[in-house]
Design a protein around this nucleic acid. Structure first.
Lengths: 145, 145
DNA sequence: TAAGATTGAGCGATCAATCTTG
DNA sequence: CAAGATTGATCGCTCAATCTTA
């Protein structure tokens, strides 16, 4: 294949791949009865060393804290997480998984890793590493803006 | 660097790169007074061989046609595009650039290609080609879902 | 029936503004 | 004043439903 502007072509290619991943993830998570945001939030809570405040969750997910509020409202209503007052700082809430949230996440993780494997199986181990390296460089370029 | 699950790591890396590109593009387009969606729409119209209906625009941008309606409403209000009845099919509208839309896009394209260069300049020509190839394979994996 | 376009509900994201607490 | 959390406005996206025309 020939490209007259590989620089631009590469950026567009990553762009559309990201967009397609977004669409695919929406469909996938819908098929298992959840959303990407809920799954990511459960993952962040579960795999955190210590308890996280809402703001901290937002920083990990790289979204505004205002975004976390509504998400937690819905998830608290479905019994997946719980807000807990923080002793010593009455402004803050820690976010905790409920037993149900933890149980649900474990089932979801199985399906998740299966589909990740399916998606990535067309690339070799070496190619996985290359992709990690190249996207890291691209992120460095983004940071340079 | 060491990864215990390069397959997953690679997918996550592309994922976050896409998310960061989205954020960066929002900031960039805001700084030049527009949005990613408006820019992409203008680009699609300008670089199309023939006139496009609203549905066709949606397909090119890979978004639902319902999404195009509101976008065109706003852009028509700002005088950038124009809806034109299609002769012979009273259901359809063609989307055309106004002189103002065309003028605006030309200025935006300059800034756009400058920033693309800036972002991608940390990668070599060979790496650009590799990135194109690897993301193509990843998209094939997504299609396999 | 089907295709082009629109509308409305819901989720997700940003930003600005506000309230409470530090 | 600053930081944690919430609210409201706006935009983008999806999906389902509807209207008109083919």
């Amino acid at each position: 294949m020939e490209f007259q502007d590989p620089e631009h072509e590469a950026l567009v290619s990553v762009w559309w791949t990201g967009a397609l991943m977004k669409k695919a993830s929406r469909r996938f998570f819908k098929s298992i009865g959840t959303t990407e945001s809920e799954f990511n939030l459960l993952m962040v809570i579960k795999h955190s060393a210590g308890p996280l405040t809402q703001s901290a969750v937002g920083r990990r997910l790289m979204v505004d804290k205002s975004n976390v509020t509504g998400l937690l409202d819905r998830m608290e209503a479905s019994g997946l997480i719980r807000r807990k007052r923080v002793k010593g700082d009455r402004r803050s809430h820690h976010v905790e998984l409920t037993a149900e949230g933890r149980r649900l996440l474990e089932r979801e993780e199985e399906a998740y890793y299966r589909v990740v494997s399916q998606i990535m199986s067309g690339l070799s181990g070496r190619e996985h590493l290359r992709l990690i390296d190249l996207t890291r460089k691209l992120r460095a370029g983004l940071a340079r803006m």
